[in-house]
Design a protein around this nucleic acid. Structure first.
Lengths: 338, 338
DNA sequence: GAAACAAAGGAAAACGATTGCCGACAAGTT
DNA sequence: AACTTGTCGGCAATCGTTTTCCTTTGTTTC
C-alpha cells in the first residue's frame, strides 16, 4: 500500500553501499577508477532503493536539461498532432522530454508559455500551429534555438519547416493528367487562407505547363463537405464539361464525391477526384476511396525535431525548409479494369 | 544577431543591483524585510537582464517541480486529444507544466517513460489511452500520485476517471423513446471491445425498463462507416420494421445514414438516428446533422487533472469516477415542422 | 628496504536558488 | 549615556549531483 515516502537520493545509495556520494556517482555513471566489485555493489544498492537520479539537480551541473518545449500557437488539432508525434518520436530517441503548451491563439498565453519554458531551461523550442501561414516570431532573440514546424515564422532568420504545398498540388494535377484527364476543376478553401491560394496557384501553373486551362476559375469557399457539395452544384450549372476535380481538402473532396453520385456522375469513370491531406477518415469513408495528397506531417515533425537537435548542438539551419508531399493513389482516380 | 550567451543567474542580478544574492532573492520573491527602494532596484536589474529563475534549482530546494507527466498508453489520437487538452488547461491554471509521452502501445516504451518522468521528479502522472477498457496499473507503488483518465486502471486502489458510457447509452435510448420511437435497433463496434458491450447492454436495459425489446439483437461489427452501411443491409433484409437506430459511434451512424438514404428511407421521418462521440466532422458532415452522445472528454480531462492536483496536495480520491455524458440533439432525430 | 608509482575511493567545491540566522546601524526610551 | 527596539541586508547552510583534486593504500622496482 501507500507510496514510498520520498525519492531515494544518491546519499541513500552511497550509505547502503558503504561508500561516499562521490564514489556512488562515479559507480553509476561509469566514471573514475573503481573496483568492479564496488561498482556492482553500488548498482545493487541503487536497484534496491529504485534510485533515479534527480534530473533537475543533474542539469544544474551540466547546464543542459534534455527537455524541449513545444508550443502550439492555436489549439492542438488535426494537423498539429502528427507534427507533434513525429517530433516527440525524434526527440524521445535523443532522450529528450517534451513540454506541451497549448497557446489557444492567445498571444498572452503564448508569451507566458515562452517565459515558463525558459525558466525551465528547455534546450530548445518547437512552435507549431494549425495553418501553414507565416506568423510573427515568438521572440526576437531567445537564449535557446527555436524551430517552426508546419507553421512558419515571418522572420527569415528563423528556422521553419513547412510542407511543400505547391509541390503537392502539382503532383495532384500531374497525376490527373497522367490518367488522361484534361478538363480539370479546382475546388478549395477560403481565398483569404494561405494554403488555398498557394495550392490553387500551383495547380494552375502546372496546368499551364501542359498548355491547359482549368474548366473554370478556382472555386474558393470553405474547407467543409458542405462546400464541396455546393461547389458541385455550381460546376454542374456552368456550361463547361469536366472530367476531374482537384479539391483543396479531403473534406471538400468527400462532399464533391457525394454530390456527384447524387447527380448521377460516376467517380472515377465520369469524374476523377483528388483530395488533399490524406485524412484516413475521409479517404476511406468516401466511396470510392479517395486519392489524396499527403503532407507527411509526421515526417515533417521528425525533421523539424532533428533540426532543433542540430541547432542545440551548435549547427543552426536558418531559413525556410520545404518538406515534400507525396500522392497516395486510390480508387477515385483509377478506373477499375473491366 | 545571435542569442544571448547564457541565462542570467540571480548572482548577475545581485551584482548589477549591488546587493547580495540572498537579498536579491528576497527582493524578487517578496520575502524578508527590505527597503522598497532596494526591491525596485533589484527588480529593475532583473528586468534588464531578463532574468528568469532556474526552475530546476528552485525545485531542488522546494521539493516540488510543478510538472506532471502525461502518458498516453496507445498512440495519441482522437480521444486522447480532448482529454489531454482539458488536463493541460486545468494544470496550466495551477502553473504546472506537462510532459507529454506517447507510449504507442509498447509496454517497454511506457516503462521507460515512467522512469524518465520519475527522474524528472514530476509531482504526478496522468495516464490516458484510446479505449476505455481497464488496463494494468503502470506501476504498483510509485512515489507520486497517478490518475487514469478515459482509460481506467485494473487496480481498484488507483484513481480513474472514465466516461459514463452506460449512462450515455441510456440517454440516447431515452431520447428516442421521448420522440416516439419504439422499434429501435442498435448497431455498434466489435463485441470484444468493452465500450461496444457496455453501451449495448445499457441500451437494452433501458429498453427493457420501457418494456420494449430491440427490433433485432445488437449488431456488433466495427466502428467504421463501411460497417454502418453494411449493417443497414442486414437490417433491411431482416423482416422486422424499425423506426430508429442507435449507433455505437458517429462513424457507424454516418454510414447508416448514407445507406438509408440510398435505400430510400428518410432520416429522421422514417428512421431516427443517434450516434456516439459527438465528433463534429461526422455529425456535421452527415445529412441531416446527427444527434449524438458527447462524452465531454475535455471536461473529463479537466476533472482528472483536478483530482491529480488534490492528490498532490494530499487528498487522494481512489476508485473509479464516472464522468457524465450528455446528449446533443440535432436534426437526425427531430422531424422538421411542416 | 626505501623510493616511485598506480589504483581506489574520499573530501569538497561547484551548479542556482532559497531561507534562517545574525550583525550593523539608527532611532527611541529611561 | 546606556539600553532596548526595529529595520535592513549579508552570511552560510541547504537541496542532489557531478567532478576535480587529494589521500590512502598496496604494489613494483632497484
Amino acid at each position: 500500500m501507500g507510496r514510498p515516502e520520498r525519492h531515494a537520493t544518491i546519499a541513500d545509495v552511497a550509505a547502503l553501499a558503504g561508500v561516499s556520494v562521490g564514489t556512488a556517482s562515479k559507480a553509476l555513471n561509469g566514471r573514475g577508477s573503481l573496483r568492479e566489485e564496488t561498482r556492482t555493489r553500488v548498482r545493487e544498492a541503487a536497484r534496491q532503493l529504485s534510485f533515479q537520479a534527480n534530473a533537475g539537480a543533474r542539469s544544474l551541473h551540466s547546464g543542459r536539461t534534455y527537455t524541449v518545449g513545444m508550443i502550439t500557437t492555436d489549439t492542438i488539432g488535426r494537423f498539429s498532432i502528427p507534427v507533434l508525434m513525429g517530433a516527440e518520436d525524434a526527440l524521445g530517441a535523443g532522450e529528450m522530454s517534451v513540454f506541451l503548451c497549448d497557446g489557444r491563439d492567445d498571444p498572452i498565453r503564448e508569451q507566458y508559455y515562452v517565459k515558463t519554458l525558459l525558466s525551465r531551461r528547455v534546450d530548445g523550442i518547437i512552435v507549431t500551429g494549425r495553418r501553414t501561414e507565416a506568423r510573427m516570431s515568438i521572440g526576437p532573440n531567445l537564449p535557446v534555438p527555436v524551430v517552426y514546424a508546419f507553421i512558419s515564422s515571418a522572420d527569415p532568420g528563423d528556422c521553419s519547416v513547412v510542407p511543400d504545398e505547391a509541390g503537392g498540388a502539382r503532383k495532384a494535377v500531374e497525376h490527373l493528367l497522367a490518367v488522361g484527364r484534361t478538363r480539370i476543376a479546382h475546388v478549395t478553401g477560403p481565398e483569404h487562407h494561405n494554403s488555398a491560394r498557394v495550392r490553387a496557384a500551383a495547380a494552375l501553373e502546372r496546368l499551364a505547363e501542359a498548355e491547359l486551362e482549368p474548366v473554370a476559375p478556382p472555386l474558393f469557399g470553405g474547407w467543409s463537405e458542405a462546400w464541396g457539395r455546393q461547389a458541385v452544384g455550381i460546376l454542374l450549372a456552368g456550361r463547361a464539361e469536366f472530367d476531374a476535380v482537384f479539391c483543396g481538402s479531403d473534406q471538400i473532396a468527400r462532399g464533391v464525391s457525394d454530390a456527384l453520385r447524387a447527380a448521377g456522375r460516376r467517380v472515377p469513370q465520369d469524374v476523377a477526384l483528388v483530395g488533399f491531406d490524406n485524412w484516413d477518415v475521409m479517404t476511406e469513408g468516401a466511396q470510392p476511396p479517395l486519392t489524396s495528397v499527403d503532407m507527411d506531417l509526421e515526417g515533417l515533425g521528425r525533421s523539424a525535431a532533428e533540426m532543433l537537435l542540430s541547432a542545440i548542438n551548435g549547427t543552426a539551419s536558418p531559413g525556410r525548409h520545404e518538406h515534400p508531399c507525396r500522392l497516395v493513389v486510390r480508387e477515385s482516380t483509377i478506373v477499375p479494369l473491366a
